[in-house]
């Protein structure tokens, strides 16, 4: 078994060894349900799709994913186990990847447990299941990007609260960059369209919305892949710089 897989297994098991996992999953399911039915008007819309469900994911993730990500490295540094981990025969890349993948898989499990809403919409009507599948994929990719940002910021501090707040702020900015209001603001400043597109292109929201409409554009997948890769690479650099203190 590769070191990444061993680390992945250990990490994933550790989520379920404490109440963290269960609390997270329950809150995630409750909130996503509440948003869909009360704020999204799932029934009132009278449409057989999951737009009201997925539409709230970016905002749900904004607070829940930093809560998962904050412990990734801050906790290792606080308890000193980072010293143990990095003196085992694993490379920095394997350690970062193993921990990230475990957290991502954990979010994936929480996301998969929303399946009753998919059953519901299929029972009530005749939705386009291709679009729903694409939306799930888009949601998972966006979660990965949030998580990668959180991984990097968690490595900067040994204080989990600081890690949480930094991640929320960073992710908020990355979401906001695609918001029509924000883009209009920049447009009002008289910036050229190219710059506006670049700003909106940086946003999670733009790419997530594209995927969740069922449009599988390679560029959107590439964007999330690149985002995750970039932030994980940044994580390895931050750990290298900060592990001494």
């Amino acid at each position: 078994m590769s070191p990444t897989r061993i680390l992945f297994r250990r990490e994933l098991a550790s989520y379920f060894a404490t109440p963290v996992a269960y609390v997270f999953i329950v809150i995630f399911l409750l909130l996503s349900g509440a948003f869909t039915f009360y704020m999204g008007g799932f029934y009132e819309r009278g449409q057989a799709d999951l737009q009201p469900f997925f539409g709230f994911h970016p905002w749900l993730y904004l607070f829940l994913i930093p809560a998962v990500a904050m412990r990734l490295w801050a906790e290792e540094r606080k308890s000193g186990s980072i010293e143990l981990l990095l003196t085992l025969p694993v490379t920095m890349g394997q350690a970062v990847a193993g921990k990230f993948l475990a957290a991502w898989a954990f979010i994936g499990i929480a996301l998969a447990l929303t399946f009753p809403i998919w059953i519901t919409v299929n029972y009530l009507g005749d939705p386009d299941n291709g679009v729903i599948l694409a939306s799930y994929l888009g949601s998972l990719l966006m979660a990965g990007a949030f998580l990668a940002v959180g991984s990097c910021l968690s490595a900067m501090t040994r204080n989990q609260v600081v890690a949480f707040i930094l991640t929320v702020v960073a992710c908020f900015l990355l979401l906001l960059a695609g918001f029509p209001m924000v883009l209009d603001f920049f447009r009002g400043m008289g910036l050229p369209q190219g710059v506006i597109d670049a700003i909106s292109g940086l946003s999670f929201l733009t790419h997530f919305n594209a995927i969740s409409k069922g449009v599988m554009d390679l560029r959107d997948l590439f964007y999330f892949g690149l985002m995750i890769g970039f932030w994980l690479y940044a994580t390895t650099i931050v750990i290298d710089l900060k592990k001494a203190d």
């Binding site: 078994m1 070191p3 061993i6 680390l7 250990r10 098991a13 550790s14 060894a17 404490t18 308890s79 000193g80 186990s81 010293e83 143990l84 003196t87 085992l88 025969p89 694993v90």
Partner: peptide, 25 residues
């Protein structure tokens, strides 16, 4: 290597922890 303060993963059982180390070694 025994780091200062002997850090480990507190939520794991002793056997689980040692098995993890054995795997990664």
């Amino acid at each position: 290597y025994l780091p200062e303060g002997a850090p480990s993963y507190g939520e794991m059982s002793v056997l689980g922890f040692l098995e993890f180390i054995a795997d990664i070694r």
